[in-house]
Design a protein around this nucleic acid. Sequence first.
DNA 1: TAGTATCC
DNA 2: TCGT
Length: 220
Amino acid sequence: MTFDLFDDLPEDSAATPAIESLADGAVVLRGAARANADVLLADVQTIVARAPWRHMVTPGGLKMSVAMTNCGACGWVSDARGYRYDAVDPLSGQAWPDMPASFRELAASAAAQAGFAGFAPDACLINRYVPGTRLSLHQDRDERDFTAPIVSVSLGLPAVFLFGGMRRADKPQRIRLAHGDVVVWGGPSRLAFHGVAPLADGDHPLLGPLRINLTFRKAR
DNA sequence: TAGTATCC
DNA sequence: TCGT
């Protein structure tokens, strides 16, 4: 029997190519974070113990549906004053938790596989999605230096990632991201509009009804 | 990047 | 305008 090797692959580990190209400078690394997912998730729990999940408020005064926290030298924050990176967690008045080695190593390895050698992120935004929550189309443009890529790690429930172009009006590609998938975008696509479609219901073996996303940036 | 109205 |  020729296909025995594929019979037991879980649904989120389809026999797709390891690397898929989305655009110039943008790739999906299928399953790149799967092997270390348990370590990554344990590290998320440690971070959340010190920097709890919170729903940030946009400059327009609306509460975001996705819960967030950060680790690293600086963290992305949004409030009535706007979007920015801050070395201090406004909830605790303390520095954000250190970025774990598991995070740094995964981010650097994924970036290198995508053609961005030497990626050393100083910020990791951690997003928690429950079914029904979404992130509408936006650009990551609060960083000081756009030469470094963005590295985005998907854990838990699958999501539809929206990857657009340089103009908000550009029709986004819809990319299904499963547990362990990593997206890297940089260079020509560094400022591409992107977002996440409303999360579908589901129950993940490790996370239950949750999706957790790690987004690594070089903010300063 | 304040605050609000409105729409895809 | 990383929101509804």
